[in-house]
Design a protein around this nucleic acid. Structure first.
Lengths: 126, 126
DNA sequence: TTCTATGCAAAAAGTTTGCAGTTAA
DNA sequence: TTAACTGCAAACTTTTTGCATAGAA
């Protein structure tokens, strides 16, 4: 794949580099629009895709674009296959001291944790 | 909130109880449609919402319906305040042996982990 | 009888794509 | 000169909502 330079793409990357708020495409659009008033959202999405292909940014993945539901009520965590989207449950004892340490450090109290692993399942070449 | 009984809702819960594949709304729709051929997707979504309000099922959350992007490359995790919505980054050394054990158990390879804490931040009474 | 649940279809929300014109190399 | 990039708008995908009717309590 060949890429040319584009002012819009450079600005999009710059905006992303200068924030740690994990923005949405729309937020990026609003920022970059200040400099390129005719910018379109489609261009932002296309460039976000290209920047990912170039390995310069990451999309914060959640496996699938569909909502998924779960009637299993006991405490468990999820492994999500990045290829086939399959979700596999696993159990785990979360280290309580680790949580305590973070609570102290951030001066907060936590009520629940989410712990998810992403990768390839057995069938997809794990 | 008051709820009445409904055959469709009962069937939706039954279908969810009898699978461990964390289905999408559409998959549930296809299953339940076998018994209720006039079923509509809207009804499935509405009942999934009600079942969540009743605490009978969970939606596998990914925080927001928007894709989010990140050009910050170093590894970090998030504490999310359930009152004010603030997100605070923290660093953590994830126990590698723990991951190895899960990989072996599930026969998968993991490329990344998501570890999120939810609760109250200092300002909100943490 | 009352009001929640339903089916249907239209709208909303978020993302992708086709097209004709622009621009980097 | 050529083919990647752009803006615009339409299409697409997933979820929500409005409305009239059916059905549980």
């Amino acid at each position: 794949m060949k890429f040319r330079k584009s002012k819009q793409r450079e600005k999009i990357l710059e905006v992303l580099k200068n924030t740690n708020c994990h923005p949405t495409a729309d937020w990026v659009y609003d920022q970059v629009k200040k400099e390129f008033p005719n910018l379109s959202l489609g261009t932002v999405y296309r460039n976000l895709k290209i920047l990912r292909q170039q390995g310069k940014i990451k999309k914060i993945e959640h496996g699938s674009t569909y909502d998924r539901f779960d009637a299993v009520t006991n405490e468990h965590y999820h492994f999500i296959c990045e290829k086939c989207g399959q979700i596999i449950d696993f159990k785990l004892e979360i280290n309580k001291e680790m949580i305590d340490k973070i609570e102290e450090q951030l001066n907060c109290t936590t009520t629940r944790q989410k712990f998810e692993l992403y990768g390839l399942c057995g069938e997809c070449g794990g």
